Simulated scan of single mutants.
Amino acid sequence: MTPEEPPPLPVAHDDREDGRDETPNERADRNWDELLQELRVMQTGTQILTGFLLAVAFQPRFEDMDVFQRDVYVVLVALAALATILALAPVGMHRALFGRRRKPELVKVATRIVKIDLVVIAALTIGVTTLIIDFTVGRTAGVIALIASVVAVGLLWLLLPRMIRRALSRRDT
């Protein structure tokens, strides 16, 4: 070792071949922190949509909604409640399991819940957009908004990450 080279870092247990030197507990802590950040973003969006939906029922024009729009509205309120419950579930689980050395299991289950919540939030976002356009512009525009929203979610939430993963795996080989 020459004087200008730094001394080698101590080697921690590398539990995966991803270039990170961390113990399983360190990995679980990092993954939990990342999940919490995702949940914060998801919860903010869900709160905004839920607040909008709750305010709609108390507007004078709520009476102008047709049966289809009211049915969609009720489904959207249920989806908003479900999205909130799902987003809070990992926090409740963490509280129940706190101090029991079960963070790896918690991260695994919470990851599944977050994925389910993303599907619910996608449906909620698509539905709210559809309802607003349907009510303000008309049914045809609402259907167009529905299709456009489904395509946007499909492209940005599903196809784009898949394309990035594929490009990175080709680059790494």
Rank of each mutant, 00 (worst) to 15 (best):
V56S: 08
R95C: 14
T136Y: 15
L53Y: 08
D14M: 12
A57G: 09
A12M: 02
R27C: 09
R102I: 01
V120W: 12
V151P: 01
L35I: 11
P104S: 04
E22Q: 07
T130W: 03
P3K: 15
R61Q: 15
V120M: 13
A28R: 10
L9C: 03
L86Y: 05
R20T: 00
K108M: 14
A57C: 07
A83K: 01
I133W: 05
A55N: 11
A145W: 06
G51L: 02
N31R: 14
T129N: 06
Q59L: 15
V75H: 02
G138E: 14
M163L: 15
T50F: 07
R100M: 01
R165K: 11
A152M: 01
D64S: 15
A28T: 10
V109T: 03
T111N: 13
W32K: 02
P7E: 14
Q47K: 02
E34R: 13
D29I: 08
D117Y: 08
V153N: 01
E22D: 05
T130K: 01
R101H: 07
G142E: 06
A87E: 04
L88F: 12
F62H: 05
A83S: 08
D15S: 11
Q43D: 12
L118W: 11
T129K: 01
Q43S: 10
W32E: 07
A141T: 09
W157K: 01
A28C: 07
T50P: 03
M163V: 11
R101P: 02
R170F: 04
D66P: 12
G154K: 03
D172W: 02
V109W: 08
G19D: 03
P10R: 09
E34Y: 08
R70S: 13
